[in-house]
Design a protein around this nucleic acid. Structure first.
Lengths: 144, 144
DNA sequence: TCGGGTTGGTTTGGTTTTCCAACTCGATTA
DNA sequence: TAATCGAGTTGGAAAACCAAACCAACCCGA
């Protein structure tokens, strides 16, 4: 039986944020850069690509483009609620990098949880609230 | 002062797994596809790109290539411990997609936590173990 | 009024990746 | 002997990417 491509949520998410520079743009928006020039400086991405990524994110409702000055016309980019829900993806990527790919200069941004400690994310089970350890999650059903 | 590109763990992680098809390859390895043909079928990616991605993952120690048959020579790909530590990234991407980009046909794979419930990941604070809610994490220090 | 500087892009022209179909190669099965 | 299978290669076309230059609209100082 001719098996098929697995259409899945990971693939759909990657279609949205999987191309180069997209997640770095989102990172900058999280860190408080909202103007085009800041995003360009801090990501280092080519300006036309960044324009494309911002337009694409806007088209999918992850970002809004807000005019903050009439003359001359100037714009800011902000995450929508949907865009902010990318936070866990960015956070887990940051954690992976911090843990396994650390550079010489330490992390350039630190986060704090409301409990007072420096924030490092771990996955928990939404149902029981317990932190998940290796081997506690199993595939129940993987489609063909 | 001429500000610079922000070197961060997100960027480093994206260098490793940020190009197209890489995370889908990793997804397949998690779901139990270990042979090249399976990976090609289930991801739908071009075979040469998949070869490249597997080699690259191998070079970075995320994947091992194991010969499971002498003649004819046949190989399997498996995640290393380092590779398995990508699980939270895949899981949060899947969750984002499930929640916000659901297809018509429901998720093709389901997971179960050892507590007995269907597994959906949420982020928790490693220090206090509490599930994190919106607004509970703040940027303490973002480098230039 | 002239020349610079700032912001938020777009255009240009070329380089690199990615994509795809078809092909290979050794071994195996029918 | 032919067909098949797994695991790739190969060659050429398409798409994505990139750096640098350009543009528009305004502001500023001399």
């Amino acid at each position: 039986m001719m098996t098929q491509v697995r259409e899945c949520s990971v693939a759909r998410t990657l279609e949205l944020v999987g191309s180069k520079w997209t997640l770095l743009v989102v990172r900058e928006l999280f860190l408080g850069s909202h103007r085009f020039e800041e995003i360009a400086r801090f990501t280092g991405g080519p300006r036309d690509i960044l324009t494309d990524r911002l337009r694409r994110l806007e088209a999918h409702g992850l970002v809004t483009r807000v005019q903050y000055e009439q003359r001359p016309p100037r714009f800011e980019y902000h995450l929508t609620d949907l865009g902010r829900s990318l936070a866990p993806i960015i956070a887990t990527m940051r954690e992976f990098g911090d843990r396994h790919l650390a550079g010489d200069d330490g992390p350039p941004a630190r986060f704090e949880h409301s409990c007072g400690s420096e924030f490092h994310p771990v996955l928990a089970c939404k149902a029981c609230g317990e932190v998940v350890r290796r081997g506690e999650v199993e595939v129940v059903e993987a489609a063909s």
